[in-house]
Design a protein around this nucleic acid. Structure first.
Lengths: 105, 105
DNA sequence: CATAATCATAAGCCATAGCTTATAATAAGT
DNA sequence: ACTTATTATAAGCTATGGCTTATGATTATG
């Protein structure tokens, strides 16, 4: 179950980050987001699609509005990847130190 | 001291991720990396520049070779951002629950 | 000193990502 | 039923990002 980096790719775009942070603050509809940002509504919808595929946000219909909310899954996945990478990095570092350390003080 | 997302942007590219993971595994020279990857040496150098600006990797001259190694700073920064986002998300979630909860069971 | 090896930068090419306008679909209000 | 509001998708434009080849600088090697 290799990590597909979708969340990271999604958050690499500044507009998408802005959208995401607004949604994290509180659930918001598409028009709300579009009004709060310097881009068109279709642009927002396109970005929301990417965020949704990365499971960073989820949707809920509310009348004619689509209210987007945070989906913790994407961040959790990302955190898991980071932790794994961190552990691996630490192991490498330790191995490196041990190798160099044989001639040490 | 706002997070500038440089690490996230850097890791959004698949080639750069491959380079980064090789470097995490163990320190490697540019030519080593170029030989291990299906891209040219200049491409590798360009990617390493981005990774270095994001403080994901560091460099050390070793004769005519430039040996790149992991720099924990970038990952640490990213983890800090993630933790902050996580906490914020959790607060929002809590606030949301409390607001809805007033009419509960 | 001459040759080979290693690397970073420059210049140019091209696919892609993000934006726009236009439009169709659904829901609410009158 | 008609109009208004909300949203997703389609089509097209353009800037940008990643790749290439070419080249100059630095270092080891003979």
């Amino acid at each position: 179950m290799a990590y597909d980096y979708a969340a990271m790719i999604a958050l690499a775009d500044p507009t998408r980050r802005a959208i995401f942070e607004l949604v994290v603050e509180q659930p918001r509809s598409v028009s709300e987001l579009a009004r709060a940002l310097p881009v068109s509504q279709p642009a927002v919808s396109q970005h929301l699609k990417v965020l949704r595929c990365a499971r960073l946000v989820g949707m809920e219909r509310r009348g004619a509005s689509n209210v987007y909310h945070l989906d913790p899954y994407g961040l959790a996945q990302m955190r898991a990847w980071l932790d794994g990478m961190w552990a691996g990095a630490f192991d490498s570092f330790k191995a490196e130190v041990e190798k160099d350390g044989k001639g040490g003080t």
